[in-house]
Design a binder for these strands. Structure first.
Lengths: 143, 143
DNA sequence: TATTGTTATACTCTATAACTATA
DNA sequence: TATAGTTATAGAGTATAACAATA
């Protein structure tokens, strides 16, 4: 068993992860939402209700742009706004039941696609991925 | 050893792969190229010289848009155009030495970032990723 | 006459600047 | 006076339509 870190492994892992990620993204349903709208919706789903400015910051977008993004999402009933409890200037945005359903359907779609691909692997290979998943998860969230 | 395919594994793998891919993308150098320009450059690098229409198709972009993208890349000396050998209407685009260098530097950057993260894993975990890499590669390229 | 690529023009998305309201 | 969000306007980027050159 070797312990020194192999730059070729990093490079290979980078390539395969980015390619697979790209293909997973391609499996998204065409729901007429822009990439920014989907991203904002997913962030609200992941982080819970956020004021507009905070959401804009997380999405690396300016507040006026986020105003338009949330307006589009609100018009489609995917997010809802609630006033801030103590600060009347702030507006909190959160995902509606429909918004959550849209995201869930989308994830489901990609899961099915990936599941079908993985079904072609032999049991030993599946087992390796089972062990690899939590490690990749840590790499993705660390620091 | 189980052989039935586990949807939870697919879901977990999807999440970790997409997140890690997202973070890898964030490591890109800020070279003032747009995402479309980088993508087109990388495609030419991967696939070799292509006529404009073909490149537009692979990037899911219309020919007029690709005309502008290649014009920007050409102006920065990252791609070059050569006439088609037999068909005078077609224009073949290919990556220049500078273009290849820019891509290589960019990949290097991400490799270093990933390598540093992976160095924190213990040898057993590194070994699992070593075995997982070619499997992910196959998933990414299959069908 | 059909096809490849470019130019002209319109639309979408995001940013900066100016404004309204609340603290 | 400072901050959160919106509205007005301008700047990228992409698309459709019309055009030029070649097959």
């Amino acid at each position: 068993m070797r312990t020194t870190l192999d730059p070729v492994l990093a490079s290979r892992l980078r390539m395969s992860v980015m390619r697979l990620g790209r293909r997973l993204r391609q499996q998204r349903a065409d729901d007429n939402l822009t990439a920014s709208q989907i991203a904002a919706l997913a962030t609200l789903d992941r982080e819970g209700a956020l004021p507009l400015g905070e959401l804009a910051a997380r999405e690396h977008v300016r507040p006026p742009s986020m105003t338009r993004i949330t307006a589009a999402l609100e018009e489609r009933g995917l997010v809802a706004r609630t006033p801030h409890a103590t600060d009347g200037r702030q507006v909190l945005f959160s995902v509606t039941r429909e918004g959550a359903k849209l995201l869930a359907d989308d994830r489901k779609r990609r899961d099915v696609w990936l599941c079908e691909l993985m079904a072609r692997l032999d049991p030993g290979e599946q087992e390796i991925l089972r062990q690899a998943a939590p490690i990749l998860e840590r790499l993705a969230t660390e620091r």
